[in-house]
């Protein structure tokens, strides 16, 4: 990375640059190890994925350039991709904003509790997102026989007579994914919000009360939110990226492929073509899917950043 910097910067910055770099070489030596890993495992893969998306590549022979045909096939000939795209967008549009609001609202409510209760509630809400494979328990909850927890309760309450095939019925698929995803979604951004709320200047609230702020909603909009804009942006990035990246939950709960592709998302479509265990080995095609997902994630993040910048104005 050190060398790379030298080369890329040389072209457009003043002659003093060489001296500046020499003077700062100790800093370059400090960032070099991390930047090397970052370049090899993040920047390079993004570029490779982009380039491969214009090729036909099976990992055995050299990639062959085929122009835009991967993208054309995706949108015109691959009905399953269109289902995946639709599902991903539905899931993202619901779980993204809802999980974001949940993370913020809970952080905000918890923040007013006494410290010990607050500590406990943070643990309760944060635990699902760090519990690894514990979300598999939802398999037991939505299980299709009468021992499935949800079915059992519903039968017990006489709401239904026969067990519902939750995981095997297409119309329930997205609903289940949304529930489980929301359950998992109070992660890093939730913590960032709690921490952000604790740093808001308390005296501002008193001043505001004198100035005529009457209820908690006004207080929230005029004081709290503008004060923690930067955490709000960070949280948005985390939630959007997660919401568009739903895939593993679908595979574990609904199976792969899910019934009538009802739980198919861009990520599962990508796994279908591009994972090392997949039998298709169409890496060029898979790269095109990955590139579309990349553009979706980056694009929606940048748009939302713009919106949040306006909060409280």
């Amino acid at each position: 990375m050190k060398v790379k910097n030298l080369q890329t910067e040389k072209q457009f910055v003043k002659p003093s640059l060489k001296k500046q770099i020499k003077k700062n070489k100790v800093y370059y030596s400090m960032i070099a190890p991390f930047m090397l890993v970052f370049t090899v495992f993040t920047i390079l893969p993004v570029l490779m994925s982009f380039l491969l998306s214009f090729t036909s590549f099976d990992m055995l022979q050299l990639p062959k350039f085929i122009g835009l045909s991967n993208y054309i096939n995706l949108f015109l000939n691959d009905d399953v991709f269109l289902i995946a795209l639709k599902n991903t967008l539905i899931l993202a549009f619901i779980t993204g904003p809802v999980s974001y609001l949940m993370a913020f609202v809970f952080a905000w409510l918890i923040n007013e509790l006494p410290p010990k209760v607050r500590w406990f509630m943070v643990l309760i809400f944060y635990a699902p997102s760090i519990s690894g494979s514990a979300y598999l328990l939802w398999l037991l909850i939505f299980s299709s026989d009468m021992y499935g927890i949800l079915n059992a309760y519903l039968i017990d309450l006489n709401l239904i007579n026969t067990p519902i095939l939750w995981l095997e019925t297409p119309k329930y698929a997205l609903f289940i994914l949304i529930i489980v995803q929301l359950w998992l979604s109070l992660g890093v951004s939730f913590l960032a919000f709690i921490a952000g709320l604790q740093t808001v200047d308390r005296t501002l609230y008193e001043a505001a009360a004198v100035d005529g702020i009457r209820n908690r909603w006004q207080e929230l909009w005029y004081i709290t939110l503008p004060q923690m804009k930067s955490q709000l942006m960070f949280g948005a990035v985390m939630q959007i990226t997660n919401a568009l990246g739903i895939g593993m939950v679908s595979v574990s709960l609904l199976g792969f492929p899910s019934v009538e592709y009802s739980g198919h998302t861009i990520v599962t479509h990508l796994l279908d073509f591009g994972s090392a265990n997949s039998t298709r080995l169409e890496m060029g095609y898979a790269s095109a899917i990955a590139t579309i997902l990349f553009v979706l994630m980056l694009g929606s993040n940048l748009i939302v950043q713009r919106i949040i910048k306006r909060v409280g104005t």
Binding site: I31, M35, F38, V40, F41, T42, I43, L44, P45, V46, M48, S49, L52, M59, V237, M238, I240, T241, N242, L244, G245, G247, V267, L270, G274, S275, A276, M283, A286, S287, A290, T291, L293, F294, M297, L298, N301, L302
Partner: peptide
């Protein structure tokens, strides 16, 4: 570099899975 790092938060690692495997 700071800019690149912020951008890299905006996508998950699924996106780069295939090239990462190759590397």
């Amino acid at each position: 570099i700071n800019q690149l790092i912020v951008y890299s938060l905006m996508f998950s690692t699924v996106v780069t899975q295939i090239p990462t495997y190759m590397i």
